[in-house]
Amino acid sequence: MIRPKLQTVKTHENGDGVASKAPPMVVRDLSKSYGSIEVISGLNMHVDPGEIICIVGPSGVGKTTLLRSLSGLMPPTSGSVSVGGKVITQPLEEIGIVFQDYRGSLMPWMRTLENVAFPLQGRGIGKAEREQRAQECLDTVGLSDAGQKYPWELSGGMQQRVAIARALAYDAHILLMDEPFGSLDAQTRLGLEDLVLDLRSRLKISVIVVTHDIDEAVYLADRVVVLAGKPASVVDNVDVDLGMNRDQIKTKSDPRFVEYRNRVLSEIMRVRD
């Protein structure tokens, strides 16, 4: 599928030589406190164009806090997040978010197509073009026929795909996802994991996924970022060298997969003790 572009964007090369439209994201010395309680301290990380990064860490460590800072929804207490060399102070056009609570993030009074097209209306794009792009993005996530349904008429997995389509329609080059598949059944979950991999290779976007599931993290990621500590910081960066083409069965039985998973797991266990 050819994705229509809103603006011409410089393409960026990442290490693998994939041309990506996504600008690089760099996090420097990011700290975040709620009142006097510091949740994240001196966190550094980077996301190269076209990379899939998975952020794992125990519950309450500050993953959502980090993702909200990356999205520009919440300013860090100190340090900075920059996208394409510019420090962000508010949500950007290039960044699309898929919230953990996808049920709550779709507007129940809008049909699926309207939900996907709505953010484009805010950009002053005409109705016909909006709807065409929304339809294309629904096609991309495999929901061609769901446009005239209401969100509550769709299953959880379908709603989550609508939320992804909405972020894509907005022309997001960096997709932030907060535990996106946490409340779905295993089969739907595996399907959506493959959708994410597929979107990345077709659309050359960067994806940052927060997850509890270590298998999911290793399966999806080019790099797994392990968060731990109180206050939290990055305790390990695991480069996952399993190539671009992954398969739920073959990849997961690959000895290297098992090795990566065990490394991430022991990292998390070590910090927990």
Binding site: S71, Q90, P91, I95, I97, G104, S105, M107, W109, G122
Partner: peptide
């Protein structure tokens, strides 16, 4: 809903649209 508020902010929905298409219907 807090998630709707975040959604509206993250997609940079302008004020008039926010009023007529989000606040009012909800």
């Amino acid at each position: 809903e807090p998630v709707i508020v975040d959604t509206v902010r993250s997609f940079r929905i302008p004020h008039h649209l926010r009023f007529f298409r989000v606040l009012l219907p909800s």
